Amino acid sequence: MSPKISDFGIARSFGGNETEANTTRVAGTLGYMSPEYASEGLYSTKSDVFSFGVLVLEIVSGKRNIGFNHPDRNINLLGHAWTLYKEDRSSEFIDASLGNTCNLSEVIPIINLGLLCVQRFPNDRPSMHSVVLMLSSEGALPQPKEPCFFTDRSMMEASSPSGTQSPITLLEAR
């Protein structure tokens, strides 16, 4: 039960007692990497919290973050969850195959928790210890801030130096 930094493959990149560091080689799975790790190579225990939040949102929605693209807006799964949350329509985020079998009063806080875990800045994300406490309590959760997601991929590519693609789009799976 000793937590380790893992983020889907980066555990092999560093020692057993490290809690944060900087790497020159980005390893992991796109869509689950925290923004600070994907863009700057900075990882910490909050990188795992981000990955956990993505998984939570994927489970609730029945959709994968990688490859999801909203039909009316150029946003990914995190952006879609955030948009519905801000419009007080989080129930629409829940996988339709669940139908009436789920209890909304239990699932809506899980969406809130997932959004808390995918906050843009690591200091805004809860610790995994706090996540476990939030999962086991019935109290009100804090309000999340806007998560890190890219709303316009073409704008992201155009803003990179010399018209080259963003480093995030150049990452390849192992």
Rank of each mutant, 00 (worst) to 15 (best):
residue 124 D to E: 15
residue 96 A to H: 14
residue 133 L to Q: 10
residue 114 G to Y: 00
residue 167 P to F: 03
residue 174 R to C: 11
residue 4 K to R: 13
residue 119 Q to R: 07
residue 118 V to C: 06
residue 60 V to K: 03
residue 134 M to R: 01
residue 108 I to E: 05
residue 66 I to S: 11
residue 90 S to I: 04
residue 112 N to G: 05
residue 84 L to H: 07
residue 84 L to I: 12
residue 30 L to K: 07
residue 69 N to G: 13
residue 135 L to F: 04
residue 67 G to C: 04
residue 42 L to T: 09
residue 40 E to H: 13
residue 125 R to V: 02
residue 24 T to R: 11
residue 14 F to M: 07
residue 49 V to R: 00
residue 146 E to I: 09
residue 115 L to A: 07
residue 60 V to E: 03
residue 81 A to V: 07
residue 59 I to N: 07
residue 12 R to Y: 05
residue 87 E to A: 13
residue 95 D to A: 04
residue 27 A to Q: 12
residue 150 F to H: 10
residue 144 P to Q: 02
residue 70 H to P: 10
residue 47 S to L: 04
residue 103 N to R: 06
residue 17 N to V: 11
residue 124 D to Y: 05
residue 145 K to A: 08
residue 111 I to Q: 03
residue 2 S to F: 08
residue 72 D to I: 11
residue 171 L to C: 09
residue 28 G to E: 00
residue 46 K to D: 05
residue 1 M to R: 04
residue 41 G to A: 04
residue 22 N to Q: 15
residue 29 T to S: 08
residue 42 L to V: 12
residue 86 K to M: 10
residue 66 I to C: 09
residue 31 G to L: 04
residue 115 L to N: 02
residue 116 L to H: 00
residue 159 S to W: 04
residue 166 S to V: 06
residue 138 E to K: 09
residue 39 S to E: 12
residue 124 D to M: 11
residue 113 L to H: 02
residue 138 E to Q: 10
residue 52 F to W: 09
residue 78 L to S: 04
residue 8 F to D: 00
residue 106 E to H: 09
residue 122 P to K: 00
residue 30 L to V: 08
residue 104 L to Y: 08
residue 154 S to N: 12
residue 106 E to K: 12
residue 161 P to A: 11
residue 68 F to H: 02
residue 15 G to D: 14
residue 62 G to S: 05
residue 143 Q to T: 15
residue 51 S to F: 01
residue 49 V to W: 04
residue 54 V to N: 00
residue 55 L to A: 07
residue 75 I to M: 05
residue 172 E to H: 15
residue 79 G to F: 00
residue 119 Q to I: 08
residue 169 T to R: 10
residue 173 A to V: 13
residue 35 P to Q: 01
residue 121 F to P: 08
residue 90 S to D: 02
residue 13 S to P: 01
residue 171 L to E: 12
residue 51 S to V: 03
residue 154 S to Q: 14
residue 162 S to I: 14
residue 88 D to H: 13
residue 121 F to C: 12
residue 119 Q to P: 09
residue 15 G to A: 13
residue 104 L to A: 13
residue 140 A to T: 06
residue 96 A to D: 15
residue 49 V to I: 12
residue 154 S to H: 09
residue 70 H to M: 10
residue 76 N to D: 15
residue 149 F to L: 00
residue 47 S to Q: 04
residue 169 T to L: 14
residue 171 L to T: 10
residue 38 A to G: 14
residue 44 S to L: 06
residue 174 R to F: 11
residue 24 T to C: 09
residue 14 F to P: 03
residue 51 S to D: 02
residue 100 N to I: 14
residue 130 S to N: 13
residue 172 E to Y: 13
residue 95 D to V: 05
residue 16 G to A: 14
residue 92 E to M: 15
residue 102 C to V: 15
residue 1 M to L: 10
residue 47 S to H: 01
residue 127 S to L: 09
residue 88 D to R: 12
residue 19 T to K: 09
residue 5 I to M: 00
residue 158 A to W: 08
residue 60 V to I: 15
residue 96 A to N: 10
residue 61 S to L: 07
residue 153 R to A: 15
residue 4 K to C: 09
residue 162 S to R: 14
residue 109 P to S: 07
residue 2 S to R: 09
residue 28 G to I: 01
residue 9 G to R: 00
residue 121 F to H: 14
residue 42 L to C: 13
residue 25 R to D: 12
residue 26 V to E: 01
residue 110 I to Q: 02
residue 170 L to N: 11
